[in-house]
Amino acid sequence: MEDVFLLYARIAAYGFRRHSAYRAAALAGAFTNSVFGILRAYVLIALWQARPGLAGYDVTDAVTFCFLSQAFIGPMQVFGGGLQLAGRVRSGDVAVDLLRPASLQLWSLADDLGRAAYLFLLRSLPPTFLGAALFGIVVPAGPAAWAAFAASFTLGVLVSFALRYLTALSCFWIVDDQGVQSLSLVLTLFLSGMVLPLNLFPGWFGELTRTLPWAAMVQVPADVYLGKRDVLEALAFQISWAAALLALGALATRAARRKVVVQGG
């Protein structure tokens, strides 16, 4: 058991190190995320100036949300991708991965967590600090609030991985993966809270979006950071979705392995 843990810890460390080879690209991403943070912050400020207290946020909350959402793009790969798996499924190399005596899903997850940790340092911190310096943002009060955010953020990465893993594996059954990727991009951008906070979405549609898994990626961790949501309830929401999607991923992996064994890839 300990050996298994060490194996995946090492894979995560490799993931971290592999991505550190792309430092310039990560910093360039942080720059772009910061620029978009500033542009979007102004739009939200204009909205909250017209409607103070809208959706339970004040102006500072809204600006904080905006920079947090930009900070989440790197670690949570909101624009999709980040997994080597997708390319390997398309090229057929995944057959080798599936026949390894280790879980493909856990392997990919460990690697992805290493990537997320690296991108957290390079792509999450700069836009957040810039937002704080230019506009001023909310800072959680006390270690308990920080711990709650850390847990919620990690769960967000987990849900993001589970969704991207399913998208990547779908290439096994869907020949033209371009469509799946486009669809997943649109759903993720819109339903995670990336485009606008979900609590601005009107009526039943807004309520629906707040129960879907994508909300666990941007909206929920940001609300936990802002102290706008009951921590235990928020974490329970994220854990349920993470568990459900990872279980679905495990089933899909098993089906994929069977397909490789029977059809030879």
Binding site: L47, A50, L183, V186, F190, V195, L200, F201
Partner: peptide, 20 residues
């Protein structure tokens, strides 16, 4: 896909104008 992704920007404007 390109149509839909960019339509999200329009959706954002529309939602903003639901509130103001």
């Amino acid at each position: 896909g390109s149509f839909a992704v960019n339509a999200l920007d329009v959706a954002a404007i529309w939602i903003i104008f639901q509130h103001t």
